[in-house]
């Protein structure tokens, strides 16, 4: 593993640790519903402050179940990850192609001068 890859792996590991530690340490245990969404908690806080508040508009389309909702969230993440992977794959391929092309033209210009490979 190159030094660069190792640093990236360590950074990823830190992100994973930040996500897993609250679960392992049981930081949600004091709650009725551990690890609920902060957005939903804010809705609860609103109804605490103003018990009479009624949302005056409801979503045009609502996922029919929690499963469908998580599927759509997964779709959103997959779309984004797909585009990112396409970008980096394309860049890598282009760079390799350019390197190969310049190596080939270098070899063609001076045959026998610099044999390819080590």
């Amino acid at each position: 593993m190159s030094r660069n890859t190792r640093i990236n792996a360590l950074l990823l590991l830190a992100v994973a640790a930040l996500a897993v530690l609250p679960l392992v340490l049981g930081l949600g245990d004091h709650k009725e519903e551990p690890f609920a969404g902060a957005d939903a908690e804010a809705e609860t806080a609103i109804t605490e402050i103003e018990p009479d508040y009624e949302p005056w508009f409801s979503p045009l389309h609502e996922p029919p179940s929690g499963e469908v909702e998580s599927a759509l969230f997964a779709l959103q993440a997959a779309l984004g990850a797909g585009v990112l992977a396409y970008y980096f794959g394309l860049r890598r391929g282009r760079r390799q192609g350019e390197e190969r092309a310049s190596a080939a033209s270098g070899a063609a210009a001076a045959p026998g001068d610099a044999p390819e490979g080590d």
Partner: peptide
């Protein structure tokens, strides 16, 4: 690269992660 930047927002805003307060965001 613009597409990739948008894609990064797509991925990250779909990632609900547990936090120290015992809730997810």
């Amino acid at each position: 690269l613009l597409g990739a930047s948008g894609a990064f927002t797509f991925v990250l805003s779909a990632l609900k992660l547990p936090s120290v307060t015992g809730s997810c965001s």
